[in-house]
């Protein structure tokens, strides 16, 4: 599972860039919501375009694209929902 986090952080980097753009255009709440949802697809597509050859490493270790994408989406979905909830409670 350790190498999964390498994939996760590589994709999340692109997701965060996307989040910064959304934040500048629409504010924090939308940035959080879109990072936790659409941002996963953005990260997945950017990784595939810029680092797609690295998928062979993950395949060799038994990870499919579907598993990587769904697990990343789950992690970001839970993290995003938690952060949004905290933000709403605190504000």
């Amino acid at each position: 599972m350790t190498i999964f986090w390498k994939y996760y952080f590589d994709c999340t980097f692109f997701n965060l860039l996307f989040g910064i753009v959304v934040y500048l255009l629409s504010g924090f709440v939308w940035a959080l919501i879109l990072c936790a949802t659409l941002g996963n697809l953005v990260g997945f597509l950017c990784f595939g375009y810029l680092k797609g050859e690295q998928y062979s490493l993950y395949f060799n270790l038994g990870y499919t694209k579907r598993f990587l994408f769904l697990t990343m989406s789950l992690v970001n979905g839970v993290a995003g929902a938690t952060a949004l909830l905290l933000y709403l409670i605190l504000s």
Partner: peptide, 19 residues
């Protein structure tokens, strides 16, 4: 589609695959 999760076959592609 079962081969990758099952870890039966490893593959060295032509292009570099390591981060």
């Amino acid at each position: 589609r079962e081969l990758i999760p099952a870890g039966k076959v490893a593959y060295l592609p032509q292009q570099e695959y390591l981060p």
